Amino acid sequence: GKELVLALYDYQEKSPREVTMKKGDILTLLNSTNKDWWKVEVNDRQGFVPAAYVKKL
């Protein structure tokens, strides 16, 4: 099944490779191999968020 993460904080994208999320959002985790930036999918968009801003559910 898909792995989900919870947004712990708001995050505003700073580049086209990133995505914006709001605290409390549930996101689909696509890739967590990089310890600093995790790739997630939110609202049919894929991009990176800081790993410290999310936690695995």
Rank of each mutant, 00 (worst) to 15 (best):
G1W: 13
G1K: 14
G1Q: 13
K2H: 12
K2R: 14
K2Q: 11
K2A: 11
E3D: 11
E3T: 13
L4C: 11
L4H: 09
V5F: 06
L6A: 06
L6Y: 10
L6F: 08
L6G: 03
L6N: 02
A7N: 01
A7P: 00
A7W: 02
L8Q: 05
D10C: 06
D10L: 02
D10A: 06
D10K: 03
Y11D: 00
Y11E: 01
Q12R: 11
E13K: 13
E13T: 09
K14L: 09
K14N: 10
K14M: 11
K14E: 08
K14C: 11
S15H: 12
S15K: 07
P16D: 13
P16F: 09
P16G: 09
R17S: 13
R17N: 14
E18Y: 05
E18M: 05
V19P: 01
T20F: 04
T20S: 15
M21D: 00
M21K: 00
M21C: 07
K22P: 00
K22H: 11
K22E: 06
K23C: 08
K23P: 03
G24V: 00
G24I: 00
I26K: 05
I26R: 05
L27M: 14
L27Q: 01
L27C: 10
L27V: 06
T28Y: 11
T28I: 15
T28F: 12
T28Q: 12
L29K: 02
L29I: 05
L30Y: 04
L30M: 07
N31L: 09
N31H: 07
N31P: 03
S32P: 06
S32F: 07
S32A: 12
S32N: 09
T33H: 12
T33I: 09
T33W: 09
N34V: 05
N34L: 09
N34I: 06
K35T: 10
K35F: 08
D36G: 09
W37G: 00
W38C: 04
W38K: 01
K39A: 08
K39I: 15
K39C: 14
K39Q: 13
K39R: 11
V40A: 02
V40Y: 01
E41T: 07
E41N: 05
E41R: 09
V42Y: 11
V42K: 15
V42Q: 15
V42E: 04
V42A: 15
N43Q: 12
D44K: 11
R45P: 00
R45T: 07
Q46T: 12
G47I: 04
G47R: 02
F48P: 00
V49S: 00
P50C: 04
P50Y: 02
P50V: 02
A51H: 03
A52R: 15
A52N: 14
A52W: 10
A52S: 15
Y53S: 13
Y53H: 09
Y53L: 14
V54K: 01
V54G: 01
V54N: 00
K55R: 13
K55C: 15
K56V: 13
K56S: 08
L57E: 05
L57S: 04
L57Y: 09
L57F: 09
